[in-house]
Design a protein around this nucleic acid. Sequence first.
DNA 1: GTAGCGACGATACGGGTGTATCGCTACAGT
DNA 2: ACTGTAGCGATACACCCGTATCGTCGCTAC
Lengths: 194, 194
Amino acid sequence: MVRDSEASRVTIVVAVWHLIAHGGIEAVTFRRVAEQAGVSVGRVQHHFGSRDQLVREACVAMVEGAAARYRELPGDPYERLEHILTHAVPDSPEVRFGTSVWYAYLAKAVDDELICELLARTKRGAEDECVALLEAARWHQAVGGGADPRLLARRLLALADGLALRVLVGDLSGAEARQLLAAELSAAVTSPVA
Amino acid sequence: MVRDSEASRVTIVVAVWHLIAHGGIEAVTFRRVAEQAGVSVGRVQHHFGSRDQLVREACVAMVEGAAARYRELPGDPYERLEHILTHAVPDSPEVRFGTSVWYAYLAKAVDDELICELLARTKRGAEDECVALLEAARWHQAVGGGADPRLLARRLLALADGLALRVLVGDLSGAEARQLLAAELSAAVTSPVA
DNA sequence: GTAGCGACGATACGGGTGTATCGCTACAGT
DNA sequence: ACTGTAGCGATACACCCGTATCGTCGCTAC
């Protein structure tokens, strides 16, 4: 029964996310994970070996989940850009959930080399994707070529991260963040370099 | 001996920062803090009571330290703006140290109401300060008033946070981040609205 | 059939953790 | 002189943690 094994792993990983989302990574414990997932401690240990491994694999699963959701988006470049920029702004409880976990892993990156590299690769990949989308979206306006798409992508991405952060701590509303991002994006795609 | 008491507290708080900076908040333990600070466990407990309180007070001390360093800056608005935007970009080891601790607390904010509020207030305060500086720095150009200084400040601040984040995980160099920020700032201060 | 193996459940053990508590000094107020 | 009281050091306790280990099912290949 290989399938049941996979189901077990998914259940456990989801439980890990839940624990992280409202308790931080220090809340991740074999016993607590088992309880949250409704399985035995031995099961968790069997599939993930050590606590570090459990935390790491849950991180990998999260990144892959985000990537999978992105791939299932419609093809329109503008929409894809909008998704990349706003998908981490915690409007709804579900997005807040994901963002909380994301930032927990970000903090964990300072003492876990592997997680650090994974997050770095992910961000770099998002930038690359963003560059490609920008070039596709601005219909080759060819307005002198002064606006480097890579720098533009980097700006937009950083802006999105910074705003998501402030929405997360709660001194900015999701609407305000989305509005600012939308304005910035439309300005980036329609105008040349400012 | 009230003075020695304060010295003890400072020593302990610094030790807490060190532990967080390369082990995350879960590395903060009465015994480890005591060892790192070179004091007894009882001393740490005496001054801070509980572990939660210790972590929180170290957070407060950090925010206050940053504020104090800011206040000692020369008065030039442009320099102050530059400091606000780039002070969290981890070029040097010391700044990286501070930024690591900062992001650890940011993640902690998801499950600690008090820390969350403190960080929110701090960010909001930075935005307010940024608004005032922007208005002082652009010499009242009065170019139609289309560029809302608050939105501009919010953009710059978010940009700085997002870039600092990427430098922290290591897929962006400190120089790249500072360069982008400097360009953005000079554009914001000299040009009207784009 | 039986040997092997993967997917568990149960449990035990050694160590680390937060915190309460006791005891001791040194000084301040009365 | 007496009494607090702040500032510790030392220790003890109950709990929780990661992990190793053992045992048990069910399936599968030979």
